[in-house]
């Protein structure tokens, strides 16, 4: 499978601080790529630059062959890159199903005029049905019409995922999806992420929890101080000396 996302020499500086330095990696179609690194390694910055939240200082990001760096977040989403937030950000005034429908925003065919003239009903029904399927897929079926304020943290995370899937992404970005979840919820989440990849959607998973990420990812990129220190298969990365350094400190390197 070819690459869906290509990141080349991506650099992001905040004043004098270089958060990401000349980072190269790619995500292939249908794969789960893990990005790992200790706190402050530049994972979330990389994520936000790809999603269009921060402008980059330099480098190039191509999605499906097209450069996307510098596009506003809504444009990047409409091209098929959807994301979840590390701290759940639901639309508090909307029930669960409508939160998911907002995720499908860019997929509605009806123009504003046809909405005003009342000729856009069929599109709405079809999208709603699809959103219901996604709510089922993440396991929130019974909470379809619930007020999002009544969801637990873990359920809120599942809602984030259903909402991102509603945009029919070709690439989905997960920002530390396991953060704050119970072990049981983590297991369920891993299952869902595998299910997403099985649908042919590429997954970029940013995580600092190795125990969650390594069994899940097909390939792993390791960051430290904004630079890539290793990449490869999970087992290779696990045994890589630079990774052990970064995670455990230099004296822990086995001889």
């Amino acid at each position: 499978m070819g690459p869906i996302l290509q990141v080349e020499k991506l650099t992001k500086r905040f004043g004098g601080l270089t958060a990401v330095a000349e980072l190269d990696f790619e995500v292939r179609e249908g794969e789960i790529l893990g990005m790992i690194g200790p706190n402050g390694a530049g994972k979330t910055t990389t994520f936000n630059v790809i999603a269009g939240t921060y402008p980059a200082t330099g480098g190039e990001v191509r999605f499906a062959g097209e450069p996307i760096l510098g596009l506003p977040p809504h444009r990047i989403a409409s091209r098929g890159v959807m994301r979840t937030f590390q701290h759940n950000r639901p639309f508090a005034g909307l029930p669960v199903i409508d939160n998911v429908l907002v995720g499908a925003h860019t997929r509605f065919a009806a123009s504003l005029w046809s909405v005003v003239l009342g000729s856009a009903r069929s599109d709405e029904g079809q999208r709603r049905k699809r959103a219901e399927e996604l709510v089922q897929f993440v396991g929130l079926g019974e909470l379809r019409d619930a007020d999002v304020a009544t969801l637990s943290f873990g359920q809120g995370r599942l809602l984030e995922i259903a909402r991102a899937l509603a945009g029919e992404p070709r690439l989905i970005l997960f920002d530390e999806p396991a953060a704050g979840l119970t072990p049981a919820e983590c297991a369920r989440l891993a299952e869902i992420i595998r299910g997403i990849a099985a649908r042919g959607i590429a997954v970029l998973l940013i995580e600092h929890d190795m125990h969650f990420l390594l069994p899940l990812a097909q390939r792993v990129v390791v960051l430290n101080f904004g630079a890539k220190i290793a990449d490869g298969l999970p087992d290779e990365v696990r045994a890589h000396p630079a990774v052990m350094d970064a995670y455990l400190g230099s004296h822990a390197t086995p001889q």
Partner: peptide, 29 residues
Amino acid sequence: KRLDDSWFGRACRAVRDNPEAAAAMGVDV
């Protein structure tokens, strides 16, 4: 009512509740 029941109305509510998340969902805020 028609606007409110459509993707546009939901986008408006999304923008009201959380503009950053709305943008990430493809809404031009």
